[in-house]
């Protein structure tokens, strides 16, 4: 939050200003099994992040003007992508190639493997490396989160024209933001990262479902509801 409102584009500044303050993990102490403890801590953090994301989405310019059905569809399709932009952004430059889920929940490869998240670790490090090589800024991360939600390919849409206008507004904001920094090509490069983001989010969703079904990791009702919509 060091560069609050530093964009010349009002939408991008607004997205960054309304970005929730990063959450801290609440360490689970209900079990002696350390890998299960990690998973329970992670799922609790994810659930709270999801709540904040829903609150934040309502503040994305144009989102609240969409029909309630479309708001729900976009969030149900794009929530994991939006949350993973945050994880990848926080994990840039992390020591020992850790994944920074929160300042007090940073998992390295061995910890992820022990928790049954080896696949997810690999996918998220790949995504992080992509953004790291671009030196993704806080403004860009906030804009990308909004774009990921708007572009989540929910189907069918209640009012496709309104969703397209919503997408166009965010696309223009990102273009203008980069143009004002004389970085015209970055908007395109950021959009080209969306397929990798989608792929990573799919793997994360499958990992969560697997943990829930095979290891009986309990999930909060909201998370279950969002997974059910997938």
């Amino acid at each position: 939050h060091a560069s609050l409102g530093s964009s010349r584009n009002k939408v991008v500044s607004h997205l960054l200003l309304t970005e929730p303050v990063p959450l801290a993990a609440n360490q689970d102490d209900s079990t002696n099994d350390s890998s299960l403890r990690t998973l329970l801590t992670l799922c609790d953090l994810l659930n709270r992040e999801l709540l904040l994301l829903i609150g934040w989405a309502k503040q994305i310019p144009g989102f609240s003007g969409l029909s309630l059905v479309d708001q729900m569809s976009l969030l149900q399709s794009g929530w994991m992508e939006a949350l993973l932009v945050g994880v990848a952004w926080r994990s840039q430059g992390a020591s020992r190639e850790e994944l920074v889920f929160a300042s007090n929940l940073q998992l390295d490869e061995a910890e992820c493997r022990a928790a049954g998240l080896a696949d997810l670790y690999e996918a998220l490090r790949h995504l992080t490396a992509r953004y790291e090589s671009m030196k993704l800024s806080a403004e860009e991360a906030a804009a990308l989160k909004a774009v990921a939600l708007a572009n989540s390919d929910a189907d069918p849409l209640d009012c496709p024209d309104a969703v397209h206008r919503f997408q166009d507004g965010l696309h223009e904001a990102l273009q203008e933001h980069e143009a004002s920094r004389r970085e015209q090509r970055r908007a395109g490069r950021l959009l080209m990262s969306l397929p990798l983001l989608r792929q990573t989010a799919d793997r994360a969703v499958h990992a969560l479902l697997r943990l829930h079904r095979q290891r009986r990791v309990p999930l909060h009702k909201l998370l279950l509801e969002m997974l059910d919509a997938k």
Partner: peptide, 20 residues
């Protein structure tokens, strides 16, 4: 929609902040 009532409620509740 009935199946996704938590999300529905969170989105409808537009005036008050999302409660944790």
């Amino acid at each position: 929609k009935e199946k996704h009532k938590i999300l529905h409620r969170l989105l409808q509740n537009s005036t008050s902040p999302v409660e944790l």
